[in-house]
Nucleic acid binder design. Structure first.
Lengths: 253, 253
DNA sequence: CGGCGATGCGTACACCGTACACAGCAGTGT
DNA sequence: ACACTGCTGTGTACGGTGTACGCATCGCCG
């Protein structure tokens, strides 16, 4: 429906997503006669492609090719490409580990949570873009991570709205920080740049021209004098700690 | 190069962006014979389309149609669609206001900065996705906003790395929060849902099924009992204050 | 006034998502 | 034993995308 239609009616207020989700369909074990494909194998192949060549390279044609099957065969398992993305996201989130340490505080849980999401994003950069694109991500494994981060703030005497606001603040930071970091890394990879200097070289002409106008003095100083620019993990942790500090101070926990 | 090519060589390490940027080309006022198009008119038309029908609706064909011109005519002004996006982003950021109040603190500046970006995003939802997609946004007006937010922390005795980390933390939060908020709003708009209840209705079956597994108790409570869920401005400000609190505490400013 | 460079036009290509009609096979009821 | 039924994978076709490339045209400058 995204392409191939002149004026999409875009749905009446009540019909929105598919009648039943993939997950509901997956639940009933199916009659499973001789099926060469499974949701799992499709998702795995798609994840492979996305990991290697980026999310844009995941096309129904290329994916079906990798699976040794016609393009339209995929549509027996997935109502559209959006659902394929849903499967991919869920597959990637399978790598989220759910450790429960004995004396952990809410802050420990949220910190570990944030770093787990970062780890997944580093292995599967496309998860960031995907999670941003699809607002309502209610795949089982994604839900499980939400539950964990929200549950970190449970039992501290906060009302549910405050809990949600705090969790949302952390998640917003994580999402934004990962968007930056991963996007940056993806750009470097796609251009085969090894380090920050290659980037500086490539954008040098543009930058020097722009900075030559003299309108961005502070940024200019940053471009010249910053040292820890590529210490990504430090940056991520710094901002995260800021958010957590603020939450602790504001909520008195 | 993004489509229509079998195996894109993807560029050698040194060539990356266009030889000269749009902005450099715009600088030399051009011979400008009788030209029916201008960069400004193109950008304005593209912004109109994106505002009305979403970023995906901005195609070179549709845009050229709106301008009463052939598709390929656009390519005289823009080396590719990416550059069109650059023009659009810069056009939207023209709405960023640069007030300088007399007694303003760094915190005032960053707060106003964040809310200005939010205001732009609310008027032009596509800016969020666009800014996230293109990592290195060095259009003049975007640079100006970066300069302002970075400059807020200047003169406080911080080294440039610390300044950058703090600014980055704020920007990461803003980006993530806006991704959520705007994405949510766009979904509602595209489905013609009036309020949160419509969304609940649409996703009700999915949710009740997922929650019926009993694996997400805290989230379940949130779904049932949250009250301020749609108070977006409050949420945005809450998280922002958390980040700023943390920065103030950590850097002693 | 001739030339020339900038501007806009038109066609063509490779690729995309997916609607739709069809073939083949597995298991079941009779 | 056999037809039936329903699920699985096939093939073709359509409307959409970005853009490479060659050609016509128009306005300024020498």
């Amino acid at each position: 429906m995204t392409q191939g239609n002149a004026q999409p009616p875009e749905g009446q207020p009540g019909d929105a997503p598919a009648a039943v989700s993939v997950w509901q369909r997956l639940d009933r074990p199916a009659k499973a006669q001789r099926a060469t494909l499974t949701h799992a194998s499709i998702a795995a192949a798609a994840v492979d492609i996305a990991d290697k060549d980026g999310l844009d390279s995941v096309s129904m044609r290329k994916l079906s090719g990798h699976l040794g099957v016609t393009t339209m065969a995929l549509y027996r398992y997935v109502v559209g490409k959006e659902e394929l993305f849903e499967l991919m996201l869920d597959a990637a989130y399978a790598e989220y580990d759910h450790p429960v340490l004995p004396g952990e505080t809410w802050r420990d849980v949220l910190t570990v949570h944030a770093h787990q999401l970062r780890a997944i994003a580093l292995r599967h950069p496309w998860t960031v873009e995907l999670a941003a694109r699809r607002v309502v991500n209610i795949t089982p494994r994604v839900m499980a991570t939400v539950e964990r981060s929200l549950g970190a703030l449970d039992g501290l005497g906060l009302d549910i709205d405050t809990m949600a606001a705090a969790q949302h603040s952390v998640m917003a930071y994580v999402r934004g920080a990962l968007t930056d970091e991963i996007g940056h890394a993806e750009l470097m990879k796609s251009q085969q740049w090894a380090d920050e200097d290659d980037l500086r070289n490539a954008y040098g002409p543009h930058m020097t021209w722009l900075l030559g106008t003299g309108r961005y003095p502070v940024y200019h100083r940053y471009g010249m004098g910053a040292v820890r620019k590529d210490d990504k993990a430090w940056r991520f942790a710094f901002g995260l700690d800021c958010v957590l500090d603020g939450i602790a101070a504001r909520l008195g926990i």
